[in-house]
Design a protein around this nucleic acid. Structure first.
Length: 496
RNA sequence: GCGCCUCUAGCUCAAUGGCAGAGCAACGGACUCUUAAUCCGCAGGUUGUGGGUUCGAAUCCCACGGGGCGCACCA
């Protein structure tokens, strides 16, 4: 924290009055700021408790409230102020005849924090109020808040100075509160099913568990380059190797890629792994988990998103990638199709196929270019090619496919899940294929992870796992179109 | 990374080639039941930055910077 405000950065009025600190014209700042305040009631609680109090009625009930001054209406020898705390709002009613330091109270600024004590009354116009006897300034708002009617709407200010956005905009408080409730509901539900929450490293010697470009950093004492994790997957499966049968982690992952309304460089992922299960066991688990969370935070499994309904009530539709793609391109294709045909269709869809792509990659690209954009969901897309699923176990009926699904909800990929590949020899082959792709220029292809291979050699039981993009889940439930709305401090270019 | 849009007082916005304005906030004053209180007064600006065109630029052009959206990449 700076010792003093930079005068050039201070509001014009404060700068003119006193570049070093408080505005002497405002007597409220002459008060000593206490170190603590004994609050006895929250605004929301008072509104409930005294809902039936009649207009003009005065109680003898003494309370002490604290919060931020949102509006002030001085009126001669009376003054009203709207006080807001985390639970809601309550009016402060001050009278020159009864209120300590009334003149100073009447000069409070919007944004000031105050503590006030007095009796509960309801004004003649029916507004629940604390009739202030004593009050104290808890913090001075030296910077003005936005327009008192319109608040702050400038998106850059809203993201860069979220503290201002939060107290100016109700909707921001709602969305970030909903995020917290989503996380809490997820944890509760998983724990009730015997999953334990674990934490694994964020600094990885080899970035693994996903196809993505990592951030690189350096540890000085170890003189080692480390990567910010792109996924916790490999460490979580190592915990299953060690004997934890149901684990989950909710945590930040980092991907050094573009930003967009649906992508933030750091985002929150939930990954869970269940031993002795395959990908089909995850289907009801996921449906139930999402439905439970939706019911807890929205009260329903039928939510509105971007003006359309998303019905999260289980069960959700299932369709294979091959059938969805066939339908979209108007001819039957699958992972066994002639690669030449897949290339032709891909070119027709406007995508230039890379010479190194095998049939699996070609089919996936074709799906993404044709079918995926029109899907709304919720929908399990199954039958992903093994070629593009290097950590997933091969389909028991077709070794060209993996036992993997992605879930699309509200047109966005929300979940990726599969039966985990637990054969160390096959895993080594998959890593090697990835490494060749990497050598051929695919920056997002995986590296061979010997540590992980060694762990698999100790024996990973049959295990199923999935990952959920938490930010996107919150976007869905809060019905916001931009990922930055669900992240308290989204990544922006540094100021200046 | 590329394309399009955008940036004016603390905030929300006007002014589209001709004197940079309003509302709110702030500041001074009036007011004993207000609800975005009301009323009177006062102050507030290198129009994102730097160039250019023009008699004259917030306005037109170029570059740079911030932000938004789209594309690409992904979750």
């Amino acid at each position: 924290m700076p010792a003093a405000d930079d005068p050039a950065d201070a509001p014009a009025d404060a700068r003119a009055a006193d570049p070093g600190g408080a505005d002497p014209a405002d007597a409220a700042t002459d008060q000593a700021i206490p170190y603590r305040f004994d609050r006895t009631a929250a605004a929301g609680e008072l509104q409930e408790r005294y809902a039936s109090l009649a207009a003009g009625e005065e109680t003898g009930d003494e309370v002490a409230v604290a919060g931020r001054v949102m509006l002030v209406r001085p009126q001669g020898r009376l003054a009203f102020a709207t006080l807001r705390d985390a639970s809601g709002q309550v009016q402060l009613f001050a009278l020159k005849a009864e209120t300590d330091r009334f003149d100073t109270f009447a000069k409070l600024s919007l944004g000031d924090w105050v503590g006030a004590s007095g009796r509960i009354v309801k004004t003649r116009k029916g507004e629940l109020s604390v009739k202030v006897r004593d009050w104290v300034l808890l913090a001075k708002a030296r910077r003005g808040f936005g327009d008192k009617w319109k608040g702050i709407t400038d998106v850059e200010t809203r993201y860069r100075q979220r503290e201002v956005d939060l107290w100016a905009n109700e909707r921001t408080r709602e969305v970030l509160t909903m995020r917290s409730r989503v996380l809490s509901a997820l944890r509760r539900d998983l724990e009730s099913q015997g999953f334990i929450e674990v934490e694994t490293p964020m600094l990885h010697p080899i970035p693994g568990g996903a196809a993505a470009k990592p951030f690189v950093t350096h540890h000085n004492a170890l003189d080692a380059d480390l990567y910010l994790r792109i996924a916790p997957e490999l460490y979580l499966k190592r915990l299953v190797v060690g004997g934890f049968e149901r684990v989950f982690e909710i945590g930040r992952v980092f991907r050094n890629e573009g930003v967009s309304p649906r992508h933030n460089p750091e985002f929150t992922m939930l990954e869970l792994y269940q031993a002795y299960a395959d990908h089909t066991d995850l289907v009801p688990l996921l449906e139930q988990l999402v439905a439970t969370v939706a019911t807890e935070v929205r009260g329903t499994t039928r939510v509105q998103c971007e003006g359309r309904e998303v019905d999260l009530t289980p069960p959700w539709r299932r369709a294979s990638l091959a059938e969805l793609t066939s339908e979209a391109v108007g001819e039957a294709v699958d992972v066994h199709s002639d690669p030449a045909d897949l290339r032709r269709l891909l070119a027709a869809a406007g995508q230039d196929p890379h010479p190194g792509w095998g049939p699996g990659k070609l089919l996936l690209e074709l799906f993404e270019k044709t079918a995926e954009t029109s899907l709304w969901g919720p929908l399990f897309v199954t039958g992903f090619p093994a070629e593009v699923s290097p950590l997933a176990r091969r389909d028991r009926h077709d070794p060209m496919l993996a036992e993997r699904f992605e879930v699309i909800v509200a047109g966005r990929e929300l979940v990726n899940g599969f039966s985990e590949l637990n054969d160390p020899d096959d895993q080594r082959k998959r890593f090697e294929a990835q490494a060749s792709a990497r050598a051929a220029g695919d920056e997002e292809a995986m590296m061979v992870d010997e540590e992980y291979l060694r762990a698999l050699e100790h024996g990973l039981p049959p295990t199923a796992g999935l990952g959920i993009g938490i930010d996107r889940l919150v976007m869905l439930l809060a019905d916001v179109a931009n990922i930055r709305e669900v992240i308290a401090f989204p990544t922006l270019r540094p100021e200046r």
